[in-house]
């Protein structure tokens, strides 16, 4: 594994971390009808290994699927239907904009650990995993590849990410969509603090044609800013916009209201879109949180 290019990423992954993510599984409820065989269950029935049902034969059906035993008994031709297991292309989209690098510990660290954990799970189940970090644009750091051996390659790529610029979800996800990738699961790992606000975030996510798993990187002080008092000049680390604030209890109350509206809006969007939404506390260990969120090892998207 190469050394991290950013000091914030020193010691990002270690053996214990990689070991701890092995038992996590993501099970897709639906997958694309095409694609390479894999161990993920599909609702489509076809030529998989596990028998599921019979149906009458129609012209053009694969003769290999005819159950000749039934034919002998009943005199009619039926096809044995098997559950078709297909792979789930997983596209990891970690946010590397400047806001992810600001605090201590930086959110990008938790975001990349999340990406690797989810990538490891997918690779472990023979899914192909691609890496597309984004900020004001999206970059293809790793084309979708399958195989457990790709995990270290993925880890290497993750440690190579560079500090991005301003978060621009619309542009980034639009470019991502233009890559023409096979339909899969897009995992967007971000704080979702797009300067355009919640409207820009939902608009950008709505345009993604893949299934969505949103991983929201949060910390306790997002909702309740600590040690803020008096007259402050707040500087947005991405846009350099300034906001003069005289911090009072009333102002803090209004801040919390605004944050809650944002969080609720993101959740509503995820619910309406059928997307998963994981809120990961960047100040806690990542794997235990994922284990908890995946309901002791299983999480359905």
């Amino acid at each position: 594994m190469k050394a991290a290019s950013e000091p914030a990423l020193d010691g990002l992954f270690d053996a214990d971390f990689l070991e701890s993510v092995q038992h996590l599984r993501v099970i897709a409820r639906r997958v694309a009808p095409r694609g390479r065989f894999a161990e993920q269950r599909s609702r489509d029935r076809g030529h998989g290994l596990e028998f599921q049902d019979y149906r009458p034969y129609v012209a053009g059906d694969d003769l290999r699927a005819i159950d000749w035993t039934v034919y002998r008994r009943l005199g009619r031709v039926f096809l044995r239907l098997f559950e078709e297991l297909e792979d789930l292309p997983v596209y990891l989209l970690p946010d590397v904009s400047r806001s992810l690098w600001l605090e201590d510990p930086p959110r990008v660290r938790a975001g990349l650990q999340c990406a690797l954990a989810l990538g490891a799970i997918s690779l472990g189940h023979h899914d192909s995993v691609g890496l597309f970090p984004f900020s004001d644009d999206v970059a293809t750091l790793l084309r979708p590849q399958a195989g457990k051996a790709r995990l270290y390659n993925l880890a290497d790529r993750l440690t190579e990410v560079e500090r991005g610029g301003v978060t621009d979800l619309r542009r980034s996800l639009s470019r991502f969509g233009a890559l023409g990738l096979r339909e899969g699961l897009a995992v967007v790992i971000s704080d979702f603090f797009d300067p355009g606000g919640l409207a820009a975030v939902t608009e950008a996510l709505r345009g993604v044609r893949h299934r969505l798993l949103l991983v929201q990187l949060v910390r306790g002080t997002d909702r309740t800013p600590a040690a803020m008092d008096g007259d402050l000049r707040l500087v947005d680390c991405e846009t350099a916009e300034v906001q003069d604030v005289s911090v009072t209890p009333a102002v803090l109350e209004r801040y919390r209201d605004a944050y809650d509206r944002f969080a609720d809006g993101l959740q509503s969007f995820a619910r309406s879109r059928g997307a998963g939404l994981l809120a990961v506390d960047v100040e806690r260990q990542i794997v235990p949180q994922l284990a908890e969120l995946f309901e002791q090892g299983r999480f359905t998207v």
Binding site: S99, L102, E103, R107, D191, F193, P195, G197, D222, M228, G230, D231, L232, R233, L234, V235, D236, C237, E238, T239, E241, V242, Q243, D244, V245, A258, F262
Partner: peptide
């Protein structure tokens, strides 16, 4: 004002 960088001023 005391200048303070934040992740967002949203």
């Amino acid at each position: 004002h005391e200048e303070l960088p934040v992740v967002t001023t949203l």
